[in-house]
């Protein structure tokens, strides 16, 4: 016999009343939800082969145990298909990991979203978009998986906007912020393989992140040209004064241009790391660093991130258009780190 679902039950006349009830009870992110009936929640749990009482994560900062049952309820509400559930579970494991450090990115005025990058066969199987309109509308998996994670943060971890989520501005990625890497067309090692997984494994990487910043280079036919533009844009972005992570998303045309010159991800990272230093003088002149400008401040420089490895390079985005983007991580390296978890199916 299947284990009992222990969540409190509420009765509604019909689906329409249940949807309104979710708004009234403060369970929604502002959009209508799918009413979480027992049958729908059980289908979600079965797809991930999880019992309702199994703990998916424990957020020490909130003293909250996140059970599979609660993840499943929120995944139903978000509009996930049952087969998305293992990805949602892996992402929730990621944000509950001490290295991600929930307290900061879940609460901060800095307003981080949870960028989720899906790699491996699961991304193709679930049709998680890695191409045109990458961060935009059109793909159920992209929009509902991220929404489910944010609903878990809201309903299970207490990250309610204006209360324990104090983002000053927030950004649209806080509704859902899921992409896949375009491993089919990419000439490079996939992100999850760089982070220790085998190519045939599936994984999701969660990163506390600002919104994407698009840059444009329709002029240069070289890797150095395209990435020089990228570095010039990146150099003054995010908090500038010691960022945790950057994600650089290279779309079709730029990906081809850079690959044609034989640059791999390591070389891209190294180039961007070296070209995004700021001088102390500039940081002081622009009121990002305190203190008066000292004699050697025009020569002394500070990198955007601690090491080239903190720049994650991902191949994704539409085939046409000389656009790519970079995404500043939230906070500093001591505050939150990117975490990758296997998607277990």
């Amino acid at each position: 016999m299947a284990a009992t679902l222990t969540s409190k039950r509420f009765s509604a006349q019909d689906e329409a009343e249940a949807i309104e009830m979710a708004f009234d009870k403060g369970w929604s992110d502002g959009l209508p939800v799918i009413p979480p009936t027992e049958a729908r929640v059980r289908a979600m749990l079965d797809a991930a082969r999880l019992g309702p009482g199994q703990q998916v994560g424990f957020v020490a900062h909130r003293a909250v145990s996140i059970t599979a049952e609660k993840v499943a309820i929120n995944a139903v509400m978000a509009g996930c298909r049952p087969e998305y559930m293992p990805v949602v579970v892996a992402a929730v494991e990621g944000i509950a990991d001490p290295r991600w450090s929930y307290h900061g990115p879940g609460t901060s005025t800095g307003g981080a979203g949870v960028l989720m990058i899906v790699n491996g066969p699961v991304a193709r199987d679930l049709d998680i978009n890695a191409g045109d309109n990458l961060f935009g509308p059109g793909w159920r998996a992209n929009l509902t998986i991220g929404r489910a994670v944010r609903l878990v943060m809201r309903n299970v971890c207490g990250s309610l906007p204006g209360l324990l989520d104090r983002g000053t501005l927030g950004h649209p990625g806080k509704l859902s912020y899921v992409i896949a890497e375009n491993e089919v067309d990419s000439p490079w090692t996939p992100l999850h393989v760089e982070r220790g997984f085998r190519p045939e494994q599936s994984a999701v990487t969660v990163i506390a992140s600002d919104a994407p910043h698009q840059f444009y280079n329709q002029l240069s036919p070289t890797a150095e040209g395209v990435l020089t533009t990228c570095a010039d844009d990146m150099r003054i972005s995010g908090t500038v004064m010691g960022q945790s992570t950057y994600v650089v998303v290279l779309a079709g045309e730029h990906m081809q241009t850079i690959a044609r010159d034989g640059w791999d991800k390591k070389r891209i990272r190294q180039f961007l790391f070296e070209k995004t230093h700021n001088t102390y003088a500039h940081l002081k002149r622009t009121q990002r660093m305190s203190g008066d400008i000292a004699a050697d401040d025009e020569q002394k420089t500070r990198p955007l991130v601690a090491s080239p490895d903190d720049i994650l390079v991902v191949a994704a985005g539409g085939r046409a258009g000389a656009f790519s983007c970079y995404i500043p991580g939230w906070g500093s390296a001591r505050s939150s780190q990117a975490v990758s978890k296997e998607v277990k199916r």
Binding site: S7, R9, S11, W27, K70, N155
Partner: peptide
């Protein structure tokens, strides 16, 4: 009539 489940943490 239908029953729906509470998505929030019940302490």
């Amino acid at each position: 009539m239908m029953d729906i489940l509470d998505p929030t943490t019940e302490a």
